[in-house]
Nucleic acid binder design. Structure first.
Length: 292
DNA sequence: CCGCGTCAAGTTCAT
DNA sequence: ATGAACTTGACGCGG
């Protein structure tokens, strides 16, 4: 049974796990109040999602604002241990799944060592969030491979080397997603073979940056990369915004494409589907209702 | 109180 | 060479 979800913000309830502030206005108490807001809103979102039967959710990267930045000196894992643990219990009770997706600044394969260190810190923070909820390794962190720097092969090798050096607490949660510019699905599957990291398939990225091989050939390999302890394969779906830049997410999901992707994936195995639409849960509600 | 300029970070691409 | 765009708003200052 495929589970569905969306990222970071609930349009229907106007709740978000993204409350943050600007660096210069950070104080410990400001951070505490934002964290409390994010925790409260996450609880409310998960309840709202459960009522609709949506069991997947992506937590925003600023759930703990500046979570990987030295300016955040809080021991938030201890301070909020109880409520974070309660969220984890709720998630497990209802067979939900949480993910995180660090932004474009998280570049593991950068030639700049400081950038790599910051990326590792961001991944460590993301893993800490999921750990603090006592969630197992099916609750994933999704990243892209990173930059090319004029030499894709050595940039990919650098990525692989960095992944193999990561602490297991991070690596066990890590998954890699292909994207619309550089690393296509084939590239990422090859990197998956070298690292053991499962691959997230994304229909819009595939359309924008296709492989020589047909999708039907690669998808079984993608699904096979998800081991029992990783949970079922995670798939991202979005529709192209008409008239916008290639790769821009549409407000809503095109039902025809949506059910085509579901049908394609269903033939291979079990999977979970994240809808990446500007309309968030409203888009999910709409496209799932359309089918009935 | 409202509106608009600005926001940690890296990389790529368009101008 | 410069700056916008990206996962995408949300904050916060000035009026």
């Amino acid at each position: 049974m495929t589970r569905y979800g969306y990222a970071c913000i609930s349009q229907l309830t106007q709740l978000t796990t993204n409350h943050s502030c600007q660096l210069k206005s950070v104080t410990p108490d400001k951070l505490r109040s934002l964290i409390e807001q994010n925790i409260n809103d996450l609880e409310s979102i998960l309840k709202h999602n459960l009522e609709h039967g949506w069991l997947l959710f992506r937590i925003g990267s600023s759930f703990i604002p500046f979570g990987s930045h030295p300016v955040n000196t809080l021991n938030w894992q201890e301070e909020y241990a109880e409520s974070l643990m309660a969220i984890g219990t709720f998630v497990r009770t209802h067979d939900m799944r949480l993910m995180m997706h660090p932004g474009q600044y998280t570049v593991l394969n950068s030639p700049d060592l400081l950038t790599v260190q910051r990326a590792i810190a961001e991944l460590q923070y993301s893993a800490n969030v999921l750990d603090s909820m006592n969630l197992d390794q099916q609750h994933k962190i999704v990243i892209h491979v990173g930059g090319v720097y004029g030499d894709k092969a050595s940039a990919a090798t650098r990525f692989i080397e960095q992944v193999l050096l990561l602490p297991i607490a991070i690596r066990r949660r890590l998954t890699i997603e292909h994207e619309e510019h550089a690393y296509n699905l084939k590239d990422v599957v090859a990197i998956s073979c070298q690292t053991g990291l499962p691959v997230v398939y994304d229909n819009l990225h595939f359309d924008a940056n296709p492989t020589v091989e047909p999708l039907e050939e690669l998808l079984p390999e993608v699904f096979a990369g998800w081991k029992a302890e990783d949970g079922v394969s995670e798939v991202h779906f979005s529709s192209q915004a008409v008239g916008e830049r290639r790769g821009t997410h549409a407000e809503f999901a095109d039902p025809y494409e949506f059910y085509k992707v579901i049908e394609q994936c269903s033939r291979i195995g079990d999977f979970d589907l994240m809808l990446e639409a500007k309309g968030k849960d409203e888009a999910l509600e709409r496209v799932l209702t359309d089918s009935e």
